[in-house]
Design a protein around this nucleic acid. Structure first.
Lengths: 305, 305
DNA sequence: CACCCTTTTGAAAATATCTTTCAGTCGTGA
DNA sequence: TCACGACTGAAAGATATTTTCAAAAGGGTG
């Protein structure tokens, strides 16, 4: 109803090729040359000035402007903008999903795109699969904890450290352990009111299951962050938070997506705890920020000499 | 000396909002007004001439042009074209957008959704803003490195460890340092053919700049992974990889999204290096996998009895 | 075939837009 | 308080776009 693609109302966004075809008959020869060029390569033409396009099509500026008018734009300038828009749309329309695996000979730009896409996918999967009831329970346990121990080895060790760092920032007593012996030594001293968290992708990493078992037996509340909720680690976990398991490949080891997934869970835990203890967390957060400020030289505007 | 920090190559089509956020700190007040206007309403601004945009933001044409330059375009004309493209994309893309910030009283399910969304956004921004030329150069340097040192403190320290772990996995000699003194001690022994990587969100963390400077002066190839490509760290960086700067809030400290962003960059570096040294990397990867297998008990089906 | 009229076309002038220059203003640190 | 440097906008300068207009090309008619 409102408007067909014919020139009148707004400059028209996309249907340029169609418009060219429709209006071509009412154009003169040289105008058609211009219209064709534009329809054939919107992106390329968007980069040209009137003069450039005139030369490309062996016509004059005047003709280019006339063509723009016929196509329904007030002038070449506006046609050019529309062209840029069209080009961008075509660009984005292409390659909606980068499902293919990363290959040895992928150019670096593809690697970036694929990795980013995969990690986004992992995040979506994790968020969708996370049991908010379990998460809420875990947050409650952490928020009320006297002391928190986090166990993780290998890649998960970094996630464990991340969680511990975050909790420390809001005034909780938290430690990350990646040495299984020390972890167990510590776990022995836990008791009811304390919380132990084990992070393992496989759900079967003995080095972090043992400390969790000890903590569990000591009466501490135990949390498992794992990609295999049916794995052995769950035996000793009061709350199980499931991370997503993405497909892996030679160039894309499991550690990559499991880490992304684990970190999202950790972030959720952190924010949840921060919410519950907002009164104390907020000041602690800004205090730690202040304290670090002087370690950063003031960044001058024109740092580059 | 080293070369300008803007990702010169292509003017960048989409990641404008991200770019605005990344570069805003290095802009003057009135430039920021312009940048904001542009980021807030690309379509609207695309319809304006320099003069129009200058009036809208209560500045002068000169300032508008300057802003366009900062954002990486040769002039306003090109910015305008990019803007038109962006507008067209947005039009077709229709973002669902959970833009709201995390509030203290958000239910846990909302927290999960918002965090996941934000991190996805961060990934997209980072991928879009990454200069693949710089990335390629960094990968080449790493792949050919005799030895790699990675510096990072605080949250970035974990990212540094992640990178070092990954490089170790494919047979590179890599170490992460979070102790600034030890880092410098180590940096002194670097020389041409070695690579040093500094990771700092602020681009102004003295503790990781100093080691990088030393490495730089020793003749090692230096790489900076930072959210502030105009920060002091860039002075000593041969290759600058820019991470995205997401808006932060009280409950969502900068560390969260900067970490996501940094990790994506690290993953890209890793995959890139693995590609280049596939012959040696592939066996190394599976070897480390095999070696760890026995640490994982076979996961029984119904562990929880 | 010559002629005139209409349509189409491009060169060049006129205008709008973008870019650069430069001097005034403002804030900052000594 | 002063001096310095960074920021800013007015206006000059350079480009790009639009308009004008006359020449050229086509096409029919005496």
């Amino acid at each position: 109803m409102k408007e067909s693609f014919s020139n009148d109302a707004p400059p028209a966004p996309a249907a340029l090729a169609a418009k060219v075809r429709t209006l071509a008959p009412s154009m003169t020869r040289s105008m058609q040359r211009v219209a064709e060029a534009v329809a054939a390569d919107p992106a390329g033409c968007a980069a040209l000035t009137v003069t450039g396009l005139a030369e490309l099509t062996s016509t004059s500026e005047a003709t280019v402007v006339r063509t723009a008018r016929i196509l329904g734009y007030p002038g070449y300038r506006d046609l050019r903008l529309a062209l840029a828009g069209l080009a961008a749309q075509q660009q984005s329309g292409r390659a909606p999903a980068v499902t293919a695996d990363i290959a040895v000979d992928d150019p670096i730009a593809d690697v970036v795109a694929k990795l980013a896409y995969d990690e986004q996918q992992t995040l979506a999967d994790t968020a969708a699969g996370l049991d908010t009831v379990q998460l809420g329970a875990a947050v409650t346990a952490l928020a009320g904890a006297r002391r928190v121990d986090v166990y993780g080895v290998g890649a998960s060790g970094l996630v464990a450290q991340d969680l511990a760092q975050k909790l420390l920032r809001i005034g909780q007593i938290a430690h990350a352990h990646s040495d299984p012996h020390l972890a167990i030594t510590n776990a022995v001293t836990l008791r009811s009111g304390d919380v132990a968290v084990s992070i393992t992708h496989s759900g079967a990493t003995g080095d972090v299951i043992e400390p969790l078992r000890v903590a569990f037996e000591q009466g501490a509340t135990t949390i498992a962050i794992t990609g295999r909720p049916d794995g052995p680690v769950s035996q000793y976990a009061d709350h199980i938070l499931t991370t997503s398991i993405a497909r892996e490949s030679e160039l894309r080891p499991a550690a990559m997506s499991s880490r992304t997934s684990q970190l999202l869970v950790v972030d959720c835990l952190f924010v949840g705890v921060a919410q519950r203890s907002y009164e104390t967390a907020a000041p602690a957060l800004s205090a730690s920020y202040e304290a670090l400020a002087h370690r950063h030289r003031a960044a001058p505007r024109g740092a580059r000499s």
